[in-house]
Design a protein around this nucleic acid. Structure first.
Length: 394
RNA sequence: CGGGAGAUAGCGCAGCUGGCUAGCGCGCAACGUUCGGGACGUUGAGGUCGGGGGUUCAAAUCCCCCUCUCCCGACCA
């Protein structure tokens, strides 16, 4: 991508009414834009990060044997009345009546919907176990949205649901999800504390929270050494048991031809919240330091004098070669001062920066800088692409 | 939902003991000079001072009501 043709508005000054570092950087680096409290647009760069995170989640969910689907956000209230959660979740549920006068809501979560769906198709133990998941927008009318996208009224969540015929089966699925979660967060550059937690409004037998220590955390978490941290909850997994299947009549016939309620688990990840959390953990006073796997682009090519044919020629050459090798490249080809481009590069925080300037190029050299470590390598111009590929692990 | 802070140009702010034809910095447009860490000069565009009502010769400024935003708490899968 070429910056001059891209929609990437960076902001120099700290936006009014922002306290959290991640909230400030989210806005300053052109990732999101607030429409109203707790409701955000994702700009092209933010959308790319979101897609990277989603793809990591997809890969690990699929590897764990879950199947992706997509359920509706618009839901009849009737189904919520069957489990009584129209009351439990009354405060956060956004409700309305459709033209026929039917009470509807925007889904704050999907246990009821998935249970109803699986009930429609699964009648036999032979069809179980099954685990389904979706990545979808949830709606919660939060009293106090906070810290940008950390607690929002409209947010993106990955929610998975397992259906089993036995507690052993549930345990197995639960363990598989637990393991997948560890991989997902690790790939996102996060080291969550995993803690047993209350099952709260979800109900059920057992649950674990995945908590990432951060100054803006709303949850308390004790680490292995018993030290308490403020932490952001990025994931929560539950052994639900039969609460929903019994309430909604999701039953199957076992080998004896006897009707049994399905045994369920559910597994959530706050996808949009992860963006804030990653920024909260990976930043310095100049901007974001994206972990490689979730970075919107892997490398920024920075020609300092775009009007210089030799500088720009080399930049274009790198751009083409790296793009051919399937590296996500952003080239700052804007006709702006060097200082501004350097500062913007630090702000948006791509893992690597290739700087091409007249002065260094006169000696046949260019620079590669690692954003996270600040390490700078000066190397012959013909070695830059090869080195970059090595750094990218290709 | 309780407590606190705030809303003036796209962004960051000043002005608030009434006198404003509303200003500064950044950004934006044009031209020229620059060109390795947010360059410089000249010219220019851009505002229902969050909204409504009131007091007054006169309101961004004083009074009342409302809306919105942020922070702390309560709440929260």
């Amino acid at each position: 991508m070429k910056w001059s043709k891209y929609f990437l508005p960076t902001i120099k000054e700290v936006p009014t009414g922002t306290e959290a570092v991640s909230h400030q950087l989210l806005l300053r680096s052109g990732l999101v834009h607030m429409l109203t409290s707790g409701v955000y647009s994702y700009l092209p760069l933010g959308w790319r990060v979101l897609s990277k995170i989603e793809n990591i989640i997809r890969e690990e969910m699929n590897a764990a044997g879950a199947h992706e689907l997509l359920m509706p956000a618009i839901q009849p209230l009737e189904i919520w009345q069957k489990t009584g959660r129209d009351k439990t979740l009354e405060e956060v549920m956004i409700r309305f009546k459709n033209k026929k006068g039917t009470s509807m809501c925007l889904g704050p979560t999907h246990e009821e919907i998935i249970t109803d769906l699986v009930k429609s198709f699964v009648q036999s133990y032979r069809q179980l176990p099954v685990t389904l998941y979706q990545i979808q927008t949830k709606f919660r009318d939060e009293t106090r949205p906070r810290f940008g996208v950390v607690r929002a009224c409209e947010f993106i969540m990955k929610d998975a649901y397992s259906f089993d015929t036995s507690l052993e089966g549930l345990k197995k699925n639960y363990d598989a999800m637990y393991a997948a979660y560890k991989k997902i967060f690790d790939r996102c550059g996060l080291k969550p504390i995993i803690a047993e937690a209350d099952t709260g409004a979800m109900g059920g037998r057992l649950s674990h929270e995945f908590l990432v220590p951060a100054p803006i955390g709303e949850d308390k978490a004790k680490d292995e050494d018993g030290i308490e941290h403020q932490a952001i909850e990025v994931g929560h997994i539950f052994q639900l048991g039969t609460k929903y299947s019994e309430a909604l009549g999701a039953v199957y016939l076992d080998e004896q031809g006897k009707q049994q309620p399905m045994i369920m688990g559910c597994y959530g990840i706050g996808v949009s919240r992860l963006i804030s959390t990653i920024i909260e953990v990976h930043n310095d006073d100049k901007g974001i330091k994206w972990p490689q796997e979730v970075a919107p682009f892997l490398v920024e090519i920075l020609p300092l004098q775009p009007s210089d044919p030799e500088v720009m020629g080399l930049a274009e050459q790198y751009y083409d070669e790296l793009t051919k090798c399937k590296i996500d490249v952003l080239m700052d080809d804007r006709d702006e001062s060097a200082g501004r481009k350097f500062n913007d590069a630090d702000l948006i925080g791509l893992p690597f920066r290739i700087t091409i300037g007249k002065r260094t190029l006169a000696e046949g050299k260019v620079e590669i800088k690692n954003r996270a470590t600040s390490q700078v390598e000066v190397l012959p111009k013909d070695a830059a692409v090869g080195r970059m590929l090595a750094l990218a692990g290709k």
